[in-house]
Design a protein around this nucleic acid. Structure first.
Lengths: 217, 217
DNA sequence: GGCACAATGGGGCAAACACACCAATGAAAA
DNA sequence: TTTTCATTGGTGTGTTTGCCCCATTGTGCC
């Protein structure tokens, strides 16, 4: 097997430099470029045609999910490996749906990162072990239930509206007053939102609303 | 000048490994140890007596600010350099007040990190350039306005601990079980936190915890 | 015409939250 | 030494949440 040509994408220069040192210490890997965000990454992929893109998920500007989608559309032969701080199942599924072949969190052992890069370079999928079991089980449950589309897309406009007000800290009664609805209806919406997103408390709702940009932290 | 002995503290193994590679590539630096959180860091400092501690600010468990405070109390000769994802002025000032000699964000150029380590090892202070001007100006403005204490300082360690668990979505009962306290005490802490921060519901608490980096969105 | 689904309502219930009031201990600061 | 404050605990009350049950209306799709 030859050398695996890797493109590093991360918005933090020090993290990029550290990753470059780590990968170049492996004698079967070569870092052919670095990108600071999604736009740069898409651009570099079309020019450098790397074997594997190491993709940070959360970045300012175009994030890793959108970048992955564009890369897999333009260059399906390029393998994308998601790398993130967050052990977040939404990021996880969105990256996979966008076309990523694997997903590793920064808390993982470096050896696991090398294994993941070699796996996706060889055309296999690699999912960080501690995530795989739990999340894949959840996923398969939902596939069986016919729920495979992106969770956020499945929220109706009204539900997003209610979710935003919940995120701003309003109670059901206040939301009802604000939207000219009954408290029961607001509760109903909240309940439906939680069902759709598989969340079970207010903390999850608020953090979801923040991640989706519905409210400011 | 001899070799600078550095202790790396970060909760992500891959980031630690990358930093280690980066620093050991410099011939005047030596990584003498790694710590995954504040507790480990304090412990390692007392055993290894490094010249410089590279300290991630936001970590689960004891964060970099509390760890810095303990280190400077027990071993004032050890220099602490804050390193963080966040260009957050609260972190910045809290680290400095805790006794850190410098502050670099992960988005900085790696060369700047080396310069900072050499500076603090030599007893100088180092503040990441793009932050210094803006933040110091803001700070002086507020000193003039008589508003020097920020609200986060007014939370006790225990209160921060409870706030973090609230932000993670645990109920009072679960927090009580986790910290071996009665539910009444947890409620009491939550109430005191809300008083101090002038917040009046769970949404505000969670968003505050996110802003301060106690929990991930 | 059926079928699915969004949106609007109703009721009930156990748990959690938010806010009162109360108190004891211990450590640190004045 | 007195005072302040963090930490620990308790009672009580009303509100909010989260999760069940139920229904009607309207829209769009097959």
């Amino acid at each position: 097997m030859g050398t695996t040509r890797v493109l590093i994408t991360d918005d933090h220069a020090i993290v990029r430099a550290g990753l470059r040192m780590l990968l170049e210490d492996q004698d079967d890997m070569e870092v052919v470029g670095e990108a600071r965000n999604g736009e740069e990454c898409v651009d570099q992929v079309s020019r450098l045609k790397p074997d594997v893109v190491l993709m940070d998920v959360a970045m300012p500007g175009m994030d890793g999910i959108a970048a992955t989608r564009q890369i897999k559309e333009a260059s399906p032969e390029v393998q994308v490996l998601g790398l993130t701080m967050h052990q977040d199942e939404n990021y996880f599924f969105q990256m996979l749906r966008a076309g990523a072949s694997g997903y590793v969190i920064k808390g993982a052992d470096p050896e696991e990162l090398f294994t993941a890069i070699r796996a996706v370079a060889g055309g296999e999928a690699y999912l960080y072990s501690s995530l795989t079991k739990k999340l894949l089980d959840d996923y398969l449950d939902r596939v069986k239930a016919g729920d495979v589309s992106d969770s956020h897309d499945r929220l109706s406009d009204r539900e997003k509206e209610v979710l935003q007000l919940i995120g701003e800290g309003l109670t059901s009664r206040e939301i009802a007053g604000s939207l000219y609805l009954s408290v029961n209806t607001v509760d109903r919406h909240r309940s439906n939102i939680m069902d759709k997103l598989d969340l079970h408390n207010k903390a999850g709702l608020i953090k979801y609303a923040i991640r989706k940009g519905l409210v400011e932290p």
